[in-house]
Amino acid sequence: MQYRMKTHMLTEVAIKELLVRTAMGSLATLNDDGTPYVIPVHYLYYNGSIYVHGLPKGQKIGNIKANPCVCMTVYEMDSLRLDPEGKPCDTNTKYQSVILSGKASLVEDIEHKREVLIEIVKKYTPQLAQKALPENMVNGTAVIQIQILDITGKYYE
């Protein structure tokens, strides 16, 4: 285990708070040839799972259908901590980060999908949360659920 994971581990509460407030994460899937495919995603942490939405076809969806194992990282950089003596190699960063791994699957149940999409609207565009979602948009949007199997978080102040 890394030294900082021993001394700067985020609590479970702090991990959940970071997942709720952060807007973007990086989702990693595996291509058919075993190379990683990492993309920035908007996401929702909801009922203990991560949800991602998007087009129903594409490399991300194809990769998940072929291999549901995924990894995701979410992070916030607060500021740089410059060394008082001006040493460039002793500059550090105040941050919080979470890395999780899990199994991804497409949400097929239309009511579950609608519920998640409504929560995504509440997170990103709360001013539109009272508007109904058009049926064709709910039906035509892919929603990926990531069952979290392992999660860690760390920080530096």
Rank of each mutant, 00 (worst) to 15 (best):
M1Q: 08
Y3M: 11
M5T: 07
K6A: 12
H8W: 01
H8S: 11
M9T: 13
L10Q: 12
T11W: 12
V13N: 14
I15N: 05
K16Q: 14
E17S: 14
L18R: 12
L18T: 08
L18A: 11
R21D: 10
R21N: 12
T22P: 05
L27G: 02
T29L: 03
N31S: 06
D32W: 00
D32L: 11
D33I: 08
T35P: 03
P36C: 11
Y37V: 05
P40W: 09
V41L: 13
V41M: 14
V41E: 03
H42N: 14
Y43V: 02
L44A: 10
Y46H: 15
N47L: 08
N47G: 06
N47M: 04
N47R: 11
I50K: 00
I50Y: 00
I50P: 00
Y51A: 04
V52F: 04
P56T: 04
P56W: 01
Q59V: 12
K60N: 03
K60T: 10
I61V: 15
I64A: 06
K65G: 00
N67K: 13
P68H: 08
C69S: 09
V70M: 04
V70N: 03
V74D: 02
Y75R: 07
E76L: 09
E76R: 14
E76T: 11
M77W: 05
M77R: 13
D78M: 08
L82A: 13
P84M: 08
P84W: 06
E85Y: 13
G86H: 12
K87L: 13
C89F: 07
T91L: 09
T91H: 11
N92I: 00
N92M: 09
T93E: 07
K94Q: 13
S97G: 14
V98G: 10
I99D: 00
I99M: 14
L100K: 01
S101R: 07
S101V: 02
A104M: 01
S105C: 12
L106G: 11
E108S: 11
E108W: 01
E108C: 05
D109E: 10
I110E: 01
E111N: 10
H112Q: 08
K113L: 00
E115N: 07
E115M: 05
E115G: 02
V116R: 03
L117Y: 04
I118H: 07
K122M: 11
Y124T: 09
Y124M: 13
Q127G: 14
L128M: 15
L128E: 14
Q130W: 05
Q130P: 01
Q130Y: 05
A132W: 00
E135F: 03
N136S: 12
N136A: 09
N139P: 00
G140Y: 01
G140F: 02
T141C: 05
T141K: 02
V143G: 02
I144P: 02
I144R: 05
Q145C: 06
Q145S: 06
Q145W: 01
I146Q: 00
I146R: 00
I148S: 03
I148D: 03
D150K: 10
I151G: 00
I151L: 01
T152Q: 07
T152V: 11
T152M: 05
Y155W: 14
Y155Q: 12
